[in-house]
């Protein structure tokens, strides 16, 4: 992958890209790091993240806005699992308990779509006209699970990032609780997908735990675990500062591993960063 060629191509489309990259060196470092870990096909995610450093933020202020955002993500996830279950490339590896698990998850995503559509009523956004194109996500079983981990973990971050917005948008507590009950199910999915990646069919990746240690992407796109905007509100998953405490590894009267501290807390992400990451890997 020629990083500079990609930047150059971007400059043709967006002459101000280098100005938007708040920190050229860090952006290139992120791209370089990414190239070692992930398939070339997912490279646009890194670029999306670079944009977000300058442009990302939580832009939703109404309950309907948040719910339509959630609806888009749920539609994306449902389509992802539906396509996976129908993909010829996955017929052989995605069998038995693994297929049942994915069917269960697809069922939940569809239930979420139905629930959100119903709650929004006439305010519901239409489906993307051309559906969702996931590129080479279904090429192999391992690749499918890597994408699934990314979608589930970022789904958890997306809902979490809207909790305060919902609570402050006239304090509709029923909406907040429902959103958190979905958020909780997405976290169950994320944990299970991560667990499935430990299996033999997925390559015995036993370093992967159901929880997120540091900002380890485990081969998924690194920006899924990175910081949003503003960083202080939406830090990376490696964050060890919580509840106004600067560093939990040392502040609690004992020393804790950063991996354990970061795993004990999941982080939220702003809607612009989430959407840009999604758009950079999925065409819709």
């Amino acid at each position: 992958m020629n990083l500079f060629k990609i930047i150059s191509e971007l400059e043709k489309v967006d002459p101000e890209i280098m100005d938007r990259l708040t920190h050229r060196r860090s952006a290139l470092t992120a791209l370089g790091d990414l190239s070692k870990k992930m398939a070339l096909a997912a490279a646009p995610i890194a670029i999306g993240s670079a944009f977000n450093k300058a442009m990302g933020q939580n832009t939703l202020t109404t309950v309907a806005g948040v719910l339509n955002y959630a609806l888009l993500l749920e539609r994306l996830e449902y389509s992802f699992y539906d396509q996976a279950l129908k993909a010829a490339t996955l017929t052989v590896p995605l069998t038995g308990a693994a297929r049942t698990a994915i069917e269960t998850i697809r069922g939940h995503e569809l239930a979420h779509v139905t629930l959100l559509t119903s709650a929004l009523g006439t305010a519901a956004d239409p489906q993307p006209a051309n559906g969702f194109n996931f590129g080479n996500a279904f090429a192999t079983y391992a690749n499918f699970l890597t994408f699934a981990q990314a979608f589930e973990d970022i789904g958890v971050r997306a809902y979490k990032g809207q909790a305060v917005t919902i609570k402050t948008a006239g304090n509709p507590n029923n909406v907040l609780q429902t959103a958190l009950q979905i958020h909780s199910v997405e976290a169950r999915h994320a944990a299970h997908i991560r667990y499935m990646r430990r299996g033999a069919t997925a390559g015995n990746q036993t370093a992967i735990m159901p929880w997120i240690m540091n900002a380890d992407a485990n081969g998924a796109p690194a920006p899924v675990y990175g910081a949003g905007n503003p960083v202080a509100t939406f830090p990376a998953e490696s964050n060890v500062a919580q509840g106004g405490i600067t560093n939990l590894t040392t502040a609690l009267g004992a020393t804790y591993d950063a991996a354990d501290v970061s795993a004990a807390f999941d982080e939220g992400l702003d809607s612009t960063t989430v959407t840009n990451i999604a758009k950079s890997v999925v065409t819709f």
Partner: peptide, 14 residues
């Protein structure tokens, strides 16, 4: 609270 909540869900699933 919500940062801890989803970790509890991960634990439960596991």
């Amino acid at each position: 609270l919500v940062k801890m909540a989803s970790v509890e869900s991960r634990h439960a699933a596991f």
